[in-house]
Amino acid sequence: MGDVGEVLKDVSQMSPEDLKRQNRNLQKFLVKVIDLLKEKTDRCTTQEKHVEALTLQAKSLKEVVQITKHMLEIRNTEVSRMSEDLESLQSKINDERTRHSAIIDKMNQAAKLNDELRTEYKLQSERFEKMRVKYDERFNILTEENKRLQESSATVTETTTD
């Protein structure tokens, strides 16, 4: 019954009853063909929808890939900028360390020079004090000598006036 050749056989020599049977067979065959066609049409529609969904999914995935690439470019740009900033900061830190070391060296030199100046000042003060003591001693000696000379000059003047 499922074969098309059997369904389309020569009907010219058939009896009316055979024709009716043949007609019923053809109608059954048509119903099967219609059902099969509906099934195939439904399957085709389902597959078309599936293809459409896959096409949309592929399109969405392409957009996601494009957005991801764009985000990666942004991230790479930010990483580059941050690397440049980090290098700049590192350079500034190194410069500041160098400057700090130079200041520390200068402060150490200044402290050493200050200590040397303090020592020299104390030494000069001691020498000045010794010189002052000697000056005072000489001043006292000279003052006493001057008094003695004045006294002796006064006695010599009194004796010559007398």
Rank of each mutant, 00 (worst) to 15 (best):
D3K: 03
D3Y: 01
V4L: 09
V4P: 08
G5R: 09
L8V: 07
D10G: 02
V11A: 08
Q13Y: 03
Q13V: 04
S15D: 06
P16E: 07
P16L: 09
P16M: 07
D18Q: 15
L19F: 06
K20N: 05
N23W: 09
L26I: 09
K28M: 07
L30E: 10
L30H: 13
V31Q: 13
V33W: 05
I34N: 11
D35G: 07
K38F: 04
E39I: 03
E39D: 14
T41R: 14
D42E: 15
R43C: 08
R43M: 07
C44S: 15
T45D: 13
T46K: 15
E48C: 07
K49N: 15
K49V: 03
K49W: 06
H50I: 05
V51A: 12
E52H: 11
T55L: 13
A58Y: 06
S60L: 01
L61M: 12
K62N: 14
E63Q: 01
E63I: 00
V64G: 00
Q66L: 00
Q66W: 00
I67M: 00
T68Y: 00
H70F: 00
M71N: 09
R75E: 08
T77S: 15
V79P: 02
V79R: 14
S80R: 13
S83P: 02
E84Q: 15
D85V: 04
S88N: 13
L89H: 10
Q90P: 00
S91P: 00
S91T: 11
K92L: 05
K92G: 01
K92V: 06
K92W: 02
I93V: 14
N94R: 14
D95E: 13
D95M: 03
S101D: 12
A102R: 07
I103W: 04
D105C: 05
K106D: 10
M107C: 05
N108P: 01
A110Q: 10
K112E: 14
N114C: 04
D115Y: 03
D115H: 10
E116I: 08
R118P: 02
R118C: 08
T119Q: 15
T119V: 14
E120S: 11
K122H: 08
K122E: 12
K122G: 04
Q124H: 07
S125A: 06
R127C: 01
R127T: 09
E129A: 14
E129R: 15
K130Y: 04
M131R: 13
M131D: 14
R132G: 02
V133R: 14
V133I: 15
K134W: 05
K134H: 12
Y135E: 07
D136H: 08
E137C: 01
R138W: 04
R138E: 11
F139P: 01
N140E: 13
N140P: 01
I141C: 03
I141H: 10
E144D: 10
E144S: 09
E145Y: 02
K147F: 05
K147C: 02
K147I: 06
Q150Y: 07
Q150L: 08
E151H: 06
S153M: 09
V156M: 10
V156I: 11
T159W: 06
T160D: 09
T160M: 05
D162H: 02
D162V: 05
